[in-house]
Write a protein that binds this DNA or RNA. Structure first.
Length: 675
DNA sequence: GAGCACTGC
């Protein structure tokens, strides 16, 4: 710490070790090219700012890796990253985006015949493999941000390892943060049964190599608490005020776990900053989380007014997805909300969990982007030492059904023997296989069915919704189900909720409410948007609807419709014109929709108990209607629901629709044979 | 009567 005598010194003690600096990418140009030339797999280790994502592809292009019309593919875990990096590289390259340098993300393909360097999301590259299993148009594939261990980048690495055996010419670059570089290199070097002889010939270690690059970050002082904080939220607030009164200029970024905490902290800081001595600099506290409307998110990027210090209270969104300039101080609560999946109950949960060392390092790094910074960790150095080195990879804590389906469609029949970077628990695999079998996507030998399973894999929605869509023609409601599929895959972003205006949102929703449940309500919302809202800018505003989300629903619907038409299924839109709300002459249509939903979502059925809670079919799990649901506080008997998530101690079901018990037996006789 | 961290096709 610097020489000044602030109180912070009493509570925070400096870290013992600092990482040694490495070399920057420009100096490594020749060695990088040499390594890619000599080794099938190169692991590039470098932090954000090292220029690996922007420079490496250009080096390779100039060195002739696209000479024979081949393409260098660079995958990113997020859409924004794919587009922004592409734009920057095109600028450096001196071309228009979409010419020599382009990008491709869902709904946006900005590439052309002349594209040589192509940025794309990793999920999209997996999809390209459905059409071109050996990814033959690529000479080099670089998987960027692989250390994040998203499901799709993990699966992509598994596929690339497999492809490499058939395409020795393919060059693979894995870009990672320091901690896991060895894991990647071991993964590609490691011999597995069928590749054992090949690996013996090449010799272990000759396949993959590691190169380290320096990040262009400034030094960061890491400070720990001397003793554990009882309440990290309170400690975060007081630390912010301490920094504000004792430390020189510079904005503060505080990592918390969720919206509720963030709103509380913003409130507390604005109250306490009112008590600062008159004439002193003021604090401008701002919230940042994904659920925030875009215009409010933009505030964090604006410079604070004269005589204000900006303090951003953020979720994990600032750890990798969003970069804010001018941050000098980071306050790290040491916690994050993580998703887990219980294969026994099929329930996802969202729980507050201690961060990993890798996360903590990433958070600290956000302080040193423009000048030397400080990171205040709201835990002791001992506690830090006991943190896991990395997060549990997503593939080990998710519902695998959509990915198993994709692997099967890629011709990987024995998914249990697929070469995973980290294999998921057997229970997760079994659960996914069982669900896919019950939906008719797999036969009794666990082989992909045709056309059902193959079509389900091609549709860009989760398996139960895919089944619902493919069943819809026989219920005469394909147009409506298309809309429902698009609306449910948006997640919870349909409504705009302004602070302290919960009541307003509720009454806005009620206008579209359908007696039958949330799916029909979503259908009403979409149809109102299509008929009135698309051209009237006031429609969304007046009804507290999220215009961006609704526009996205239109895109998703169009894309799904194109898939279905390619399958030869005719989408008759003429019937969709009139409303399906109760009371009209279309209650038969509403029933067909509910029946069709049952045909896909029979595994997500529940029955309401006299006390108003729900119970799943086996009666083992208590479920609650989510407060956002139309079925919250309404009477029902049997229902199906889109998803179930546990937060705190309760499991909530979202997007709920009434059904008849008899339909479950009718559409899923095998699943409910004991009933 | 109570609430979704973050991505992606």
């Amino acid at each position: 710490m610097s020489g000044s005598d602030f109180d912070l010194g009493a509570a925070f003690i400096p870290a013992l070790h600092k990482p040694a600096p490495l070399l920057p990418i420009a100096k490594h140009r020749e060695s990088l090219l040499y390594l890619v030339e000599s080794y099938p797999v190169t692991i590039v280790v470098g932090q954000t700012g090292s220029g690996k994502s922007t420079q490496a592809p250009q080096f390779l292009e100039h060195a002739g890796w696209c000479a024979d019309g081949k393409v260098i593919g660079v995958t990113q875990p997020r859409r924004v990253a794919a587009t922004t990096v592409a734009i920057r590289v095109a600028e450096e390259f001196g071309c228009e985006v979409g010419k020599e340098v382009g990008y491709s993300i869902r709904f946006e393909d900005v590439t052309s015949e002349s594209t040589r360097i192509k940025f794309l999301t990793d999920g999209l590259l997996i999809r390209e493999a459905l059409v071109d299993p050996l990814l033959s148009r690529y000479s080099v594939i670089m998987v960027d941000e692989a250390h994040e261990r998203s499901i799709s980048s993990d699966i992509l690495l598994g596929l690339l390892k497999k492809i490499r055996r058939k395409r020795p010419d393919l060059r693979i670059i894995v870009s990672s943060a320091t901690l896991q570089a060895e894991d990647f290199s071991n993964f590609f070097s490691e011999a597995r049964e069928d590749a054992a002889s090949e690996a013996r010939q090449e010799g272990k270690g000759d396949i993959a190599t590691i190169v380290s690059l320096e990040g262009r970050t400034y030094p960061i002082d890491i400070l720990y608490l001397e003793s554990p904080a009882e309440d990290y939220l309170e400690k975060a607030v007081s630390t912010v005020l301490d920094i504000h009164t004792n430390e020189p200029k510079g904005d503060i970024l505080v990592f918390l776990t969720g919206r509720e905490e963030i709103d509380q902290a913003v409130q507390a800081v604005s109250e306490r900053s009112a008590q600062l001595p008159p004439g002193s600099q003021s604090i401008l506290p701002l919230p940042l989380y994904a659920g925030l409307p875009t215009d409010q998110q933009m505030y964090v990027f604006e410079e604070a007014p004269e005589n204000y210090r900006k303090v951003i209270f953020s979720t994990n969104i600032s750890e990798a997805s969003v970069t804010i300039d001018g941050i000098v101080y980071v306050v790290d609560s040491g916690f994050v909300k993580l998703r887990a999946y219980n294969p026994r109950s099929g329930i996802e949960s969202l729980t507050v969990t201690p961060v990993s060392k890798a996360s903590a390092a990433q958070r600290a790094g956000r302080a040193g982007r423009t000048k030397p910074g400080k990171c205040f960790r709201l835990y002791t150095e001992e506690a830090y030492q006991s943190l896991p080195s990395a997060n549990v990879p997503e593939i080990q804590r998710s519902n695998l059904a959509p990915f198993i389906l994709q692997l099967k469609a890629l011709g990987i029949d024995n998914v249990l023997r697929f070469d995973f970077l980290t294999p998921p628990p057997a229970e997760l695999m079994t659960r996914a296989l069982e669900l896919l079998y019950s939906l008719g996507a797999l036969d009794e030998y666990a082989k992909l069915t045709k056309p059902m399973g193959l079509r389900m894999a091609e549709l860009a929605v989760e398996p139960m919704m895919a089944k619902t869509l493919l069943s819809a023609p026989s219920f005469g409601c394909l147009s409506e189900i298309l809309t429902i599929a698009a609306m449910t895959s948006l997640g919870g972003n349909i409504w705009i909720q302004h602070e302290g205006e919960k009541k307003k949102t509720e009454s806005a929703k009620r206008k579209f409410a359908a007696e039958e449940g949330d799916h029909l309500t979503l259908l009403n919302v979409y149809q109102a948007f299509i008929t009135k809202g698309r051209n009237e800018s006031r429609f969304c505003h007046d009804n507290l609807l999220n215009f961006k989300a609704m526009t996205r629903a239109v895109s998703i619907r169009n894309q799904l419709k194109r898939y279905l038409e390619r399958f030869g299924l005719n989408v008759d839109e003429s019937l969709a014109a009139h409303s399906t709300s109760t009371g009209g002459g279309s209650s038969n249509k509403a029933e067909q929709i509910r029946r069709c939903l049952t045909a896909g979502y029979f595994a997500h059925a529940a029955r309401m108990q006299p006390d108003g809670t729900f119970r799943n079919v086996s009666g083992t799990t208590v479920l609650h209607a989510h407060p956002s649901s139309i079925m919250f506080n309404r009477k029902a008997d049997w229902v199906v629901f889109h998803e179930v998530m546990e937060t705190g101690t309760k499991a909530f079901i979202r997007d709920v629709t009434r059904i008849e018990k008899a339909w479950l037996l009718e559409y899923a006789p095998e699943f409910y044979k004991t009933g």
